[in-house]
Structure formats: structure tokens, C-alpha cells
Design a protein around this nucleic acid. Structure first.
Lengths: 143, 143
DNA sequence: CGATAATATATGTATATACACAATTGATCC
DNA sequence: GGATCAATTGTGTATATACATATATTATCG
């Protein structure tokens, strides 16, 4: 199959690879009952301790409305709690006790998926990937 | 902001970067009235000439059901046509005349987005990215 | 040839994503 | 201090995504 000409589009390449990798991680996280995207959000919330919906979205480069809805799902699952901020416009998000447990429960499954990738990709390539993706995100900010 | 510890998760990194880059391309493709994902699909259909929904999904590493629905959207937009295959289980997809025009219309917008990225990222890094993404997709196939 | 297995597409359900716009609250500036 | 502007979240709408399951068609095997 003609793999060459297909792949000048950086965006198409990324989307396709992300589908493949997301499927890979999601299937491995499935016993824990959460998806990779949820795992990422929970992790970011944990590290921040407390942060607003908007801050969370910015950190993950999601549209605000996407962050609102994703937080809403996590709240319905009982994994996060939300409280009005001192600034009443803001809604602050924290992990619930259940959310902390869920992260712990999911961690070994994530670790297994992650180490499969790390084993299959040379360490320097993984570092290159991080660097390139960071650079791409900077480029996406321009103008 | 603590950017380090965040980013051991290859999947989370990819998802985040893909959100950023997709926003970048989609905004630039907007005048043409299609999204990057649709542009990718149309391009693949054009190159194949004619292919089944399943083949298209496999090529793009989408779940079958996703391919079905995405083709359905393109069909409603009048950009592709579908016909039953010789094997009556299969649904064959081809570009419509309108679809070919739409691809031509979108191309300059895509080209501009793409060259912004290519200008901002050294050529060797772009090649590295392709290589790493291909490798990741191979890894995602294992077991 | 008929029953069974394999293959391809379709549908129900749920999350993920972003844009446009609305609503509320806070900040700024005469 | 009140009007205006900015910031934050929420909602309506549409596409994107995948799993489970159903349906239809082809292939296989006895």
C-alpha cells in the first residue's frame, strides 16, 4: 500500500497515530474502568491539587467547552469534586477520595502499556518524540 | 508550570499535541468548509480511486464503526458516493465530482498550514516524527 | 446442499472535541 | 459609582471516536 504520498500531512499523521495509540492504551486501561484521556485529566488534577476548569483545559490544550464537559463526566463518575472559586466565575476542581483510589487502581495498567511502548521504542526516540511534540504545540500557537 | 513529570505518558502527549495541531489545521481549513480529518479521508479516497468502508477505516486506523459514520457525513455533504460492491457485504466509496472540487479548493489552505509547520520544524525532525509515529503504530498492533 | 463460521456494514450508547453564543461575575475607566 | 469591557463557565449543535451488538452476505465444511 502506498504509504509515502499519504504522509506529508503532519496533522493527518498525528491523528492517525493517536487513534492507534489511544486504542492501545484504552484497551489496557479498560479493567480499571477509565480511558487514557480521563487518566490524563485525573493526573493533572492530582498534580495541581486544585485548579479551575479553564486552567485544566489550557494545560491540556482543550477548548474550554471540552474541559467543562470532560470535568462534568468525571464528576458524575465521582472521581472529582468541584467548588466555586473565590472568584465566583471560576469552578475549582479537585480529586475526590474515590478519584485518588481510581488513579492508584489504574496506574499498574497504565504502567504496563507505557513500558511496552518504552521497550519498543529506543529511549532516544521517545525523547525526540517529546521534543518534537512540544515544538509542534509551540508552532500551533503562532498567530 | 511543571511540564516534566506530566509527560511520561506517550499517549497523553500525543493526544494533547494532536488537539493543538488539529486546531491549527482546522482553523486554516475553515474557509474551505471541511476539517482536517475530512481532508485526510478525501485524500485517501482519491488516491485509492475506489475502496470499501472497511479498507478506508483500516488505512486510517479507525474502528469500522467510525469509518461508517465518517463516510456517512461525507456522503451527506455530497463529497463522496457509495455503491454496493461486487461482494454485496461491502460498500464501495469514491469521490464525487464535488468532492474532487472540494479537495482542490481546500488544498491551498492545507498547503499553507503544512508549510508553516515545515518551516517551523527542521526537516530532519519532521522525518523523525514520521518515523516515530510509524513505529508507534506498529507497536500498537502487538498482541 | 444445508448448517456453521467468518466477514462487512449498520445501529445504540457513551465519551471527546470544538465553535458559536449566552450568562454571570469581575475589572476598568471615566 | 455606574457603564463598559474582560474573563469564566455553561449550552446548543455537529463531527469524531470506539465498543457491543445486530444484520446481512459470503465462505467453509461435512
Amino acid at each position: 500500500m502506498d504509504k509515502e504520498k499519504n504522509q506529508r500531512c503532519a496533522c493527518g499523521q498525528l491523528q492517525r497515530a493517536t487513534r492507534a495509540i489511544t486504542q492501545f492504551y484504552d484497551r489496557r486501561l479498560r479493567p480499571a474502568g477509565i480511558r487514557t484521556s480521563q487518566y490524563s485529566m485525573l493526573n493533572n488534577i492530582k498534580r495541581a491539587g486544585e485548579l479551575s476548569v479553564g486552567e485544566l483545559g489550557a494545560m491540556l490544550r482543550m477548548d474550554h467547552s471540552t474541559a467543562v464537559r470532560n470535568v462534568s463526566v468525571l464528576r458524575k463518575m465521582g472521581l472529582v469534586e468541584t467548588t466555586p472559586g473565590r472568584d465566583a466565575r471560576r469552578k475549582m476542581v479537585t480529586l475526590s477520595a474515590q478519584g485518588r483510589l481510581k488513579l492508584d487502581e489504574a496506574h499498574p495498567y497504565w504502567e504496563k502499556a507505557q513500558s511496552s511502548i518504552e521497550k519498543g521504542l529506543k529511549a532516544d526516540l521517545l525523547i525526540s518524540l517529546s521534543m518534537i511534540l512540544d515544538r509542534l504545540q509551540e508552532l500551533a500557537d503562532e498567530e
